[in-house]
């Protein structure tokens, strides 16, 4: 299965910029489907970025994060070629992990 996570991590010397797009419905549990039944809440709760054995950035999300979430941040202390590990867990216990090489 193709990964649900798309990452672009680019280094410009000292600073690595990370852009991530995840495929996830991020259902709030407040919306009804076409038959009028409530769609149960289904959303990512935790998204973690790990580089060289250290958590550089951790997101805790609620239902108000948009569908197919996007997040961008930057960090210091990595160089080109280093691996960035990204993983998420949702409220139903599902998860996905991927690694990206910093370019």
């Amino acid at each position: 299965m193709a990964s649900s996570i798309r990452v672009r991590a680019t280094s410009n010397g000292d600073i690595t910029e990370v852009q991530t797009l995840i495929q996830h419905p991020m259902d709030t549990g407040l919306v009804k489907d076409s038959k009028g039944e409530l769609i149960p809440a289904h959303f990512i709760q935790e998204l973690k970025f790990e580089c060289n054995g250290k958590d550089v950035f951790v997101a805790n999300w609620g239902t108000a994060v948009s569908k197919d979430p996007y997040v961008k941040f930057s960090f210091k202390g990595a160089k080109k070629g280093d691996e960035l590990k990204i993983s998420w867990t949702d409220n139903k216990g599902a998860s996905d992990t991927t690694t990206a090489k910093i370019a």
Binding site: I15, K54, D55, V56, F57, V58, A59, N60, W61, G62, A64, V65, S66, P69, Y70, V71, K72, F73, S74, F75, K76, G77
Partner: peptide
Amino acid sequence: AASYRIADGTIPGVAN
């Protein structure tokens, strides 16, 4: 809506 933990060495900023 969202809460982000910023580590030492991470630039304090986020876009979502």
